[in-house]
Design a protein around this nucleic acid. Structure first.
Lengths: 197, 197
DNA sequence: CTCTTGACGAAACTGTCAGTTTCGACAACG
DNA sequence: CGTTGTCGAAACTGACAGTTTCGTCAAGAG
């Protein structure tokens, strides 16, 4: 309706004061820092705004909800820490991937746990988390598919199930905290799935 | 200090009005029902108090926090739905256990997700969830140990890792909601771990 | 240069919810 | 019947998400 009335593809290129990308970045950085350092409960929109020297108004002009801010902060920080190497030796690559993933996850566990909690009540955060985890699953799945092609995994392996077993164990230990999540776990996991020989 | 001064082991057996167990039960039942039906965000202490026809005051006299109430409600409901049979055929028992566990978990997924979210900020709920899941892990671990003794699992299986892979996958799918959690999953999981033959 | 547009900070405001406190019954036991 | 502790009702505090209002400032248009 509205679009028909005006019928202007790009009527006004732009005018007025431009948004400051430094402000946006400061918000994301402070959000991630707060989540990493403090308890999740200590991280409020007001706290982020204060830490970034920004008004709440500005935050809500750029993101629709608290969950959206936290999620983008997490996604950005996670993007920086992805290995993705290929030595040609499947078992080594898988172990490297898992070990690096676990190490990073433990380092930012406060952030991950907070986002997971937020996603259980905020649909925006839930959808974002679904997309974020989908990307991570796709990466691991591609790696496992290579192992399957090279005959290092049983031919009838269910890759989706395997992926969820790995990431599931990771999240389970992160969220409950009953057992460690370190390089040893990564090594044992790899040994439990690859075919002997 | 205080104990020394009085020096009375059981000074006063009891006096005054007795607490009404029906009230306690009503609170737990209503809490579990609310969590099962509605969104978790719709479940507040006020809502539970109103549904149970009880004052908030009464709830807080019996439990220290919201998380404690929800956790006890969950633990009670979960206790009613444990299989624990033994047909002698390990693979069948394992599949039955997993399938029943998944079915129940999906049915009360709103409750489980809410508790998990609560446990990420309330230490009381976190400790309770740790104990609850420890019991579940112990049960599954005992079942797997039987399979190991009977030679149906690889001799070098890491049972703790296996347990966390199973429950991890369950929670992961419950919390993210990207893939189903049904009998088929249980069957495939069993097939992926037992030795052929 | 000046006017318009929109980004931004400050701060007040609304609504919800956890947890506390107060008060007035009321029930059991001595 | 008095003491003791349970219970409901309701007001209250404090924190926080999200909104609104207002004044200011920066950048482009004319």
């Amino acid at each position: 309706m509205l679009g028909r009335v005006t019928a202007e593809p790009q009527p006004r290129p732009h005018t007025g004061r431009r948004r400051n990308p430094a402000v946006r970045q400061a918000i994301l950085d402070c959000a991630a820092d707060l989540l990493a350092d403090n308890d999740y409960s200590a991280v409020s929109i007001d706290a982020i705004a204060q830490a970034a020297g920004v008004s709440k108004h500005t935050i809500y002009r750029w993101w629709p909800s608290k969950g959206a801010v936290l999620l983008e902060a997490m996604a950005e920080r996670a993007r920086k820490l992805t290995p993705g190497l290929d030595t040609g030796v499947f078992a080594d690559d898988l172990e490297t991937f898992l070990a690096a993933t676990f190490r990073t996850a433990v380092k930012v566990s406060g952030l991950l746990r907070g986002i997971m909690a937020e996603a259980q009540r905020d649909p925006v955060a839930a959808e974002g988390l679904r997309q974020f985890t989908a990307g991570r699953r796709e990466e691991l799945r591609a790696l496992l598919a290579r192992g399957l092609r090279q005959g290092e995994l049983p031919a009838d392996s269910d890759l989706d199930l395997l992926v969820d077993q790995f990431f599931g164990l990771m999240w389970y230990r992160l969220l409950i905290g009953h057992a460690p999540l370190d390089d040893t776990v990564a090594a044992r996991l790899v040994r439990s799935v690859i075919l002997p020989g």
